[in-house]
Amino acid sequence: MAGLAVVAAAGMIVDDRVLVGVPIWSKPLKFAVSFAAYGLTLAWMLSRRPAPSRAGTWAAHTVVVTGLIEMSVIVGQTLRGRRSHFNVETPLDRGLFLTMGGTIGALWVATLVIAVLLFRTRLGDRPTTWAIRLGALIALAGLLLGGLMLLPTPEQQARRAAGLVSTVVGAHGVGVPDGGPTMPLTGWNTTGGDLRVPHFVGMHALQALPLLLYGIEALARRRARLRDERVRLRLVLTAAGFLTGLLALVTWQALRGQALLHPDPATLVALAALVAATATGGCAALRTPRTPDTDAHQPTRTMEPTG
């Protein structure tokens, strides 16, 4: 995938074709980078287990094979100048799109198996264990939300009801057609909802929580309070709560046909409440935990006899 990302980046430079409003090699580039990060993270998570297992080996191989099939279709369609996702214009296009749907389903099941394995064993100290486990759970939710893109849009449903043949089924955008103005790098729609946003937020919790924990552990060299395992665990749980809330928020925003960069007052209020709750949880997490040793040094009051 890393090598393919280099090839796709070169394609961005030498190939000036545009497909659905974006450079034709942008999708292979983004998917190659995403698969590289995904595979590397899952491999690291599985390496934390004390011993390999048949289920873990099967799941790891499934991730590799499905990723290769997915990227083969995406690159092949790019070379043909055709859409890989949502394209049912010809029998070949339809067959390739259905193949991609099957591989993503298998990828989700393999990730679920890995998540179950991660919950069945200790992966280090408690903060590390729960950063990995919760990151995997949120990633599963993000992958599942990608299925919303496969639903026919109201326009596509109307064409079907009128007996017309649709060449495209599903879309990234909500309330606007794909191919309009987009954000740089991500390609997310700037005039309407985009279901790729929650898909991205959920999937990359897989990396976000462990990386956050690494940052906390680096700061612990200077901040004695962060050396306490319970404090780090509380911060991980708070961050997981924030990512879960953010995933729900951007999903709600996208389904209402609202662009990420143009939130309405309701979205802003929900975001402010989420940030406030996270800040409160973070402050509570940083409290110095009471331990039996500290309690033992507290002066005790004794009852003096009276009379």
Rank of each mutant, 00 (worst) to 15 (best):
D15W: 10
D15N: 09
D16I: 03
R17D: 06
V18M: 13
V18Y: 10
V18G: 04
V18C: 10
L19Y: 12
L19M: 12
L19T: 13
L19R: 13
V20I: 15
G21T: 15
V22C: 07
V22R: 15
V22N: 04
P23G: 15
P23N: 15
P23V: 15
I24G: 01
I24Y: 01
I24M: 02
W25V: 05
W25G: 04
S26Q: 14
S26G: 09
K27D: 06
K27S: 07
P28G: 05
P28V: 10
K30M: 12
K30R: 12
K30N: 02
F31R: 11
F31A: 10
F31E: 05
A32D: 14
A32N: 11
V33F: 06
V33H: 00
S34V: 02
F35Y: 14
F35R: 03
A36E: 11
A37H: 01
A37T: 14
Y38W: 13
Y38K: 01
Y38N: 00
Y38I: 03
G39L: 15
G39N: 03
L40C: 09
L40T: 04
T41Q: 02
L42K: 00
L42F: 04
W44C: 01
W44T: 00
M45H: 12
M45K: 00
L46S: 04
L46V: 12
S47D: 12
R48E: 09
R48S: 11
R48F: 14
R49W: 09
R49S: 03
R49N: 01
P50N: 01
P50C: 09
A51K: 08
A51D: 13
P52V: 10
P52K: 06
P52A: 06
P52Q: 07
S53W: 05
A55P: 01
G56L: 10
G56E: 07
W58D: 00
W58R: 02
W58N: 00
A59L: 11
A59R: 01
A59N: 04
A59I: 07
A60K: 05
H61K: 07
T62D: 04
T62K: 06
T62S: 13
V63D: 00
V64A: 13
V64P: 04
V64T: 03
V64I: 15
V65N: 03
V65Q: 03
V65T: 08
V65A: 11
T66E: 04
G67C: 09
G67F: 11
G67M: 08
G67K: 02
L68N: 05
L68M: 08
I69E: 02
I69S: 08
I69V: 15
E70D: 15
E70S: 10
S72H: 00
V73P: 11
V73T: 14
I74T: 08
I74E: 04
V75C: 06
G76E: 08
Q77I: 14
T78M: 00
T78H: 01
L79N: 00
R80T: 03
R80N: 10
R80C: 01
R80M: 12
G81W: 14
G81C: 12
R82I: 06
R82L: 11
